[in-house]
């Protein structure tokens, strides 16, 4: 184990003289295994600065897609109003002029989820799993490009994993 460790070290680690600290720093920077640590230290430094600047960061009240809670509704955290197919929900998007059908997806409930909404109080907890609703509106329509990129990332990551896996079988 020790030999392996020594093989990884660069000769400058034993450097002496005036410039030894520089040589050692150079040596540390040039070892691949230290890369994640180095990056972690950089992030930590920036976050410490961020922690100091927290008092100067203020929350903007005027947000896109604001959340409103209505515990009496059976669609509770996701009730944004509207009637399926007829009346769109009111959605505050960045560029509503680019999305002519905005609000319809939010208002839509499948027949089944409509049934559940009418007869139970907790459809809101599963609404994410049914087509329709505010999240589908954002994820598929107004900010659909995010989901395209996200799906592509997953696709490529699986392509990498699958390629490595399949090659190991050959």
């Amino acid at each position: 184990m020790k030999e392996v460790q020594e093989a990884k070290d660069c000769p400058a680690k034993k450097a002496r003289g005036t410039f030894a600290p520089f040589q050692k720093l150079s040596c540390y920077l040039s070892t691949i295994e230290n890369l994640p640590k180095l990056y972690a230290i950089c992030v930590c430094l920036i976050i410490v600065f961020g922690l100091c600047s927290v008092p100067f960061i203020s929350y903007e009240e005027d947000q896109l897609y604001p959340k409103s809670l209505d515990p009496s509704s059976s669609l509770d955290p996701y009730d944004r109003g509207g009637v399926p197919f007829t009346e769109p929900a009111v959605i505050i998007a960045q560029y509503p002029e680019n999305a002519p059908a905005i609000g319809y997806v939010t208002a839509y409930l499948t027949p089944l989820s409509q049934f559940l909404a009418d007869y139970t109080f907790h459809l809101g907890t599963t609404i994410v799993a049914h087509p329709g609703g505010i999240l589908d509106e954002i994820l598929y329509y107004t900010r659909g490009f995010d989901t395209i990129v996200e799906a592509s990332i997953l696709f490529c990551a699986f392509a990498i994993a699958a390629f490595l896996y399949r090659r190991s079988k050959e």
Binding site: Q63, L64, Y65, P66, K67, Y78, I134, L135, I138, L139, R143, D146, T147, V149, E150, A151, I153, L154, C156, A157, F158, I160, A161
Partner: peptide, 20 residues
């Protein structure tokens, strides 16, 4: 906001993809 919920999903998926 609702936007946060919509942004978490891609964030989560990126993490899953990378660990994979």
């Amino acid at each position: 906001t609702d936007l946060a919920e919509a942004l978490i999903l891609p964030g989560l998926v990126v993490g899953v993809a990378e660990i994979m």
